[in-house]
């Protein structure tokens, strides 16, 4: 049986010694089911122990192993060497490089936290877990279908690597955060739309988006953040109109 080998170039960056990222090339043996993640694990185990990268579940649910593979944002565990002639792996575009293939995702996490990604009730007692539960929040399948797709996000960051508007302006809240805000606004159990709409309404909210659509293209969970953001534009525009009317009324 012939052994297949692929030339794999991996981005290296060691902050303590490097000024710039650089590429290191390896020859990696592979079979028809070798994933990109397995390839870099081979490199770390057998060829270059100092190579750093994030990974966890190996099954496209934890969101850890996002890298640029030949210039496209991909999950390493879900991308296979059989589909490529050669491989160039780099850390996610548009994020600062922490080390090797590890991107600095602090900004991303902060954005998710900013938009209040939790059920908000007008009556805080509804969520008070020190009291016995007297009623459940019911939700029909129809109500679930309104937001379910947007709840599938695994926070992998591929959509931010894909988004050129985020690449130009790191203050843009970005696809995942805006899709998450939309997910909660669309959940019938939530009463917090008023608290989240200022984030949508901002220039750094939905209005930085020019519907490139690459975010939805690369999303491994088919969340379709582009749809969420652009539906958010309609909501935000309606809110703008209502605000004008109430401003006019006040005069």
């Amino acid at each position: 049986m012939t052994d297949m080998t692929m030339k794999v170039r991996v981005q290296r960056y060691r902050p303590e010694v490097d000024e710039q990222p650089w590429m290191q090339e390896f020859d990696v043996p592979y079979t028809e089911d070798t994933s990109v993640l397995e390839a870099i694990q081979f490199i770390k185990d057998e060829l270059e122990p100092s190579l750093s990268f994030r990974w966890s579940c190996r099954m496209a649910i934890c969101g850890s192993c996002g890298y640029m593979v030949n210039g496209e944002p991909k999950l390493g565990c879900k991308t296979f060497l059989r589909d490529y002639k050669d491989l160039e792996i780099a850390s996610l575009e548009n994020f600062p490089i922490e080390r090797d293939l590890v991107a600095d995702l602090n900004g991303f996490i902060e954005k998710l936290e900013t938009i209040k990604p939790y059920i908000i009730r007008e009556n805080e007692k509804d969520l008070d877990t020190s009291e016995p539960i007297t009623e459940a929040f019911t939700q029909t399948p129809a109500q679930l279908s309104k937001y379910k797709q947007f709840s599938q996000c695994i926070n992998c960051g591929l959509c931010y690597a894909a988004c050129p508007q985020f690449g130009r302006n790191p203050e843009f809240l970005g696809p995942a955060a805006l899709a998450l805000a939309f997910r909660y606004n669309s959940d019938n159990r939530d009463q917090g739309s008023k608290e989240r709409i200022p984030f949508l309404n901002a220039e750094e909210g939905v209005w930085s988006c020019t519907f490139v659509g690459y975010c939805s293209e690369v999303c491994p969970k088919s969340v379709d953040p582009a749809a969420a953001i652009n539906q958010g534009k309609a909501l935000s525009a309606a809110d703008y109109g209502l605000n004008l009317i109430s401003l006019a009324k006040k005069d």
């Binding site: 960056y13 902050p15 575009e93």
Partner: peptide, 20 residues
């Protein structure tokens, strides 16, 4: 010892990818 390397978007970003 952290020194995150900030990658700024180049003006030719859109030439790198068929989708763009």
């Amino acid at each position: 010892y952290r020194k995150p390397y900030v990658q700024n978007q180049s003006a030719s970003w859109w030439l790198k990818n068929k989708f763009y």
